[in-house]
Design a protein around this nucleic acid. Structure first.
Length: 475
RNA sequence: GGCCCCAUCGUCUAACGGUUAGGACACAGGAUUUUCAUUCCUGUAAUCGGGGUUCGAUUCCCCGUGGGGCUGCCA
């Protein structure tokens, strides 16, 4: 699930909840060639993770996908199988709002190419609109592949009021005769959207700005079918740093990426809500319920927002301190990857770094122990490659023995400093990194982020709770 | 090329036509801290350009400029 779609889903959810409406999931899978196995599971999992549970449509319960609601099916391929879109396509054709087109892909390609050469806007030239009804019947009867195109009234001006953008106008003659039914019998998005949103009694459509230019087509279709269109809100796009449309190439754009990195659902929700919307106050931290209470479309920004995750880490820190003590250990624990028995520290450290990017200290510290011969002493000297997670407590214990009982006053800073300098060539910088986490774990004193990480790695949940209690956690 | 949308600090953004143009993140400096954390204080930093309208434009209008989206038998 793309973060941009996730934000749109959030906005839709918020409006649905604050207006006592239903948040509905419909699966738009009319392009058979582009269906990705497991995609719907992934999307629903992300929604569930964030607490955006659908009231109706395609739902997931106990990991099983099902459908709920009286206006189903909610999967367009199933609706297509029922001949639902075909019915309305025929109505449109009968009323003269659509016509069959037999043009081949090759001809269309050549046509567009020629139009571009002549510096014209690429648009269907209506060759097939001039076909006689006899010829049309004959070619259809002969089984010739064809599509159904909508006949856009060129003389019309289509005007509409977008909830975010206000009044927007289009001249009919610049709107292309969009394909409504493909030659494989599936509808295109345009037809499916109009038919389904009417049948499912959708009264508000929140979608990305990339749809704005096809809105006149949709409005015309609602009109041709004699239906009242929903309200529309076209939200601005999320952008790359260079202000182009947010892409996978330049950013981590999948919600699953952020889940894997250990960000809390509250954090992603809070972050995304504020990218393009603000309450008009100085409040920065919002729970889902607060968003439901305060969100409004008229405070959504018109300009696109750069997807800059810098603020995400700050939010993570804020929420880490905010969540209840009782939840804390349970929510942190699963973030630590299950390293294999024979994974070395390097591997483990890399895994941790990869998965918990906001705990920067621990991997370095683990590496230090791993590479530090004088600390590892005999314990590690001969088994460098075989160190297991299970060995960690022993290592720490050994360290404790070497350093003597650790107390507030008798802290063997000198010795460690000396060793650290010898091995790393650096001084206090590494020392602080090492001492505090270690001390915290060994003595149970709540202190550093490294301690948190070590405690997680060792499964010391009591320590986690103490750390949390100290309320001095960095992100 | 055509059509449509947009334009305030580096980023996210606030500002009934009248503010020293505000906040947050990031950054810099400082205080607290037996950590590179937290917390606190301070600082650097913006209205794309040009015309109007007005006593007065960030705000309203027009023209530029810049950026983006669409221009598929994809959504």
């Amino acid at each position: 699930m793309h973060v941009g779609n996730f934000r749109t889903a959030l906005y839709a959810y918020l409006v649905a909840k604050q207006t006592q409406g239903a948040f509905l999931i419909r699966l738009e899978d009319t392009d058979q060639g582009r269906s990705i196995p497991g995609a719907i599971e992934s999307i629903l999992r992300c929604l569930l993770w964030a607490g955006l549970t659908p009231d109706e449509g395609v739902v997931m319960e106990n990991g099983i996908i099902g459908q709920r609601g009286s206006k189903g099916p909610y999967i367009q391929s199933e609706r297509q199988a029922e001949g639902l879109y075909q019915t309305y396509a025929e109505k449109l054709r009968a009323s003269g709002h659509a016509y069959p087109c037999f043009c081949t892909a090759e001809r269309l390609e050549k046509m567009r190419h020629d139009q571009e050469q002549r510096k014209q806007a690429p648009m269907y030239d209506r060759t097939c609109l001039r076909l006689s009804s006899e010829e049309i019947e004959r070619r259809i009867a002969a089984g010739e592949p064809h599509v159904l195109r909508m006949k856009v009234p060129h003389e019309r001006t289509i005007e509409f009021n977008d909830a975010i953008r206000g009044v927007v106008k289009f001249q009919g003659h610049v709107v292309d005769d969009q394909v409504l039914m493909k030659s494989d019998g599936f509808p295109t998005y345009h037809l499916a959207h109009v038919v389904d949103d009417h049948l499912m009694e959708i009264d508000l459509v929140i979608r990305g700005e990339e749809w704005l230019s096809s809105l006149p087509k949709h409005l015309l279709l609602f009109e041709a079918l004699g239906w009242t269109p929903p309200k529309y809100a076209h939200v601005p796009l999320l952008l790359n740093a260079d202000r182009t449309k947010l892409s996978k190439r330049e950013n981590a754009v999948s919600v699953e990426d952020y889940i894997a990195k250990g960000y809390l659902p509250e954090v992603l929700l809070n972050f995304l809500a504020l990218l393009g919307w603000n309450p008009g106050t100085t409040q920065e931290l919002f729970s889902l319920n607060e968003l439901i209470a305060q969100f409004s479309l008229d405070r959504v920004q018109k300009a696109g927002a750069i997807f800059d995750v810098t603020k995400l880490d700050w939010l993570q820190g804020q929420w880490m301190r905010k969540i209840p003590l009782s939840d804390f250990a349970a929510r942190i624990r699963p973030l630590v990857p299950q390293a294999k028995e024979d994974d070395g520290f390097e591997k483990k450290a890399a895994l941790i770094q990869e998965r918990i990017t906001f705990f920067s200290e621990a991997p370095t510290m683990l590496r230090f122990f791993y590479e530090q011969p004088s600390v590892s002493i005999d314990l590690l000297a001969n088994e460098k490659q075989k160190v297991k997670r299970e060995d960690l407590p022993a290592i720490f214990e050994t360290l404790g023995t070497i350093l003597g009982p650790i107390s507030e006053q008798e802290w063997r800073e000198e010795k460690l400093l000396e060793e650290t300098k010898r091995v790393t060539g650096e001084g206090k910088w590494k020392l602080g990194q090492l001492l505090w986490p270690l001390r915290a774990v060994l003595t149970g004193l709540p202190y550093s982020p490294g301690a948190l990480e070590v405690a997680v790695a060792l499964g010391k949940e009591e320590t986690l709770l103490r750390l949390k209690q100290a309320a001095s956690l960095p992100s």
